[in-house]
């Protein structure tokens, strides 16, 4: 074989094998990387389209938590005197809501992502997992928009950030991972059972009430407090407030939450991979 011939053989186009898919199989990170531009466009489309033909536009992302906090501050902070760990109640509640709103919008968007993009699923190939991931990333943008208000509130109350402020991105990533893990599972389930769509708002409402957003986890008596971590968002919200505002932290609770989140991510990935081969047939 001469040199030029060898170079032609090297230019041979990529070979793809199509085989039956059984079970979950490993995640093909190489392929995900190859489709990174599609991920970018999916997120870009969601954001670009979200506030089209709305009057207030992107301020909706900020307006929702601000209004919720106002109501919570009046009823829970002023009237019910809910403890807020030495932090002004509006600041305490808004910090919790930023994380919580991020989590729920990421969860809702990733859960709906597969069913909403039926056309894409039945007509083109791409790693299906990009859709739930794009749902979480699109929610991240909204979350970032609501951060300046949080900083504004801290300035207003003259409240300096805590020493552990470095941990803030970590807890936000944990919230995203939690939403992705559960979103992967729910989005795949949603393909087969559209009940998921109706269950989600209800689930989120119950979850909100049982997460320390409007109240601190310290309301629970101590031997039980660690079990609160089984609600993964309990650890994330408490951790975020600890990092930003220096409220007291129950380490055990946060560690239990982190373990649950990682478990949810692995289980979510596994279930999604197992189901995705039949998406186009079942959807």
């Amino acid at each position: 074989m001469t040199a030029p011939e060898r170079s032609v053989a090297a230019a041979e186009p990529r070979v793809t094998f199509v085989r039956p898919r059984k079970g979950a199989g490993p995640v093909e990170f190489e392929e995900l990387w190859e489709f990174r531009e599609l991920l970018y466009y999916l997120v870009w489309r969601t954001i670009k389209v979200r506030y089209k033909q709305t009057f207030l536009g992107a301020s909706w992302a900020v307006l929702q938590p601000v209004l919720t906090v106002s109501v919570l501050s009046i009823f829970l902070g002023r009237l019910a005197h809910v403890p807020s760990g030495g932090v002004p109640y509006p600041l305490f509640a808004y910090a919790g809501l930023v994380v919580w709103t991020f989590f729920t919008s990421a969860l809702t968007q990733s859960t709906q992502s597969i069913v909403e993009q039926q056309m894409m699923i039945t007509r083109v190939y791409f790693p299906r997992i990009l859709l739930p991931i794009s749902g979480v990333l699109a929610a991240t943008v909204d979350m970032l928009l609501s951060l300046p208000v949080l900083i504004g509130l801290m300035l207003w109350y003259g409240f300096p950030p805590a020493r552990a402020v470095w941990s803030i991105p970590l807890f936000l990533i944990l919230a995203a991972v939690a939403a992705l893990g559960i979103g992967l599972w729910l989005s795949a389930l949603n393909v087969r059972y559209r009940d998921v769509r109706y269950a989600i708002p209800f689930l989120i409402q119950l979850w909100f009430l049982s997460t320390p957003v409007m109240y601190p986890s310290s309301l629970l008596p101590n031997p039980w407090r660690i079990f609160y971590g089984i609600n993964p968002m309990a650890g994330v919200v408490e951790g975020f407030r600890w990092g930003l505002l220096g409220t007291e932290l129950h380490r055990g609770l946060v560690l239990v939450s982190i373990a649950i989140i990682l478990l949810a991510l692995v289980a979510g990935f596994h279930y999604f991979r197992r189901m995705e081969a039949t998406f186009a047939d079942v959807i």
Binding site: E12, P13, R14, V15, T16, F17, V18, R19, P20, R21, Y41, R45, K48, V49, K52, Q53, M119, M120, I121, T122, R123, V124, Y125, A277, T278, A280, D281
Partner: peptide, 29 residues
Amino acid sequence: RITAPTDGWAEIHGRVGSLIGVGTGFHPD
């Protein structure tokens, strides 16, 4: 690769383009 075969295989040399996908992902807005 929209759906997987139940049995058997295919070997594809090169990028596959499909006109099944015409207009997929188009957003009216």
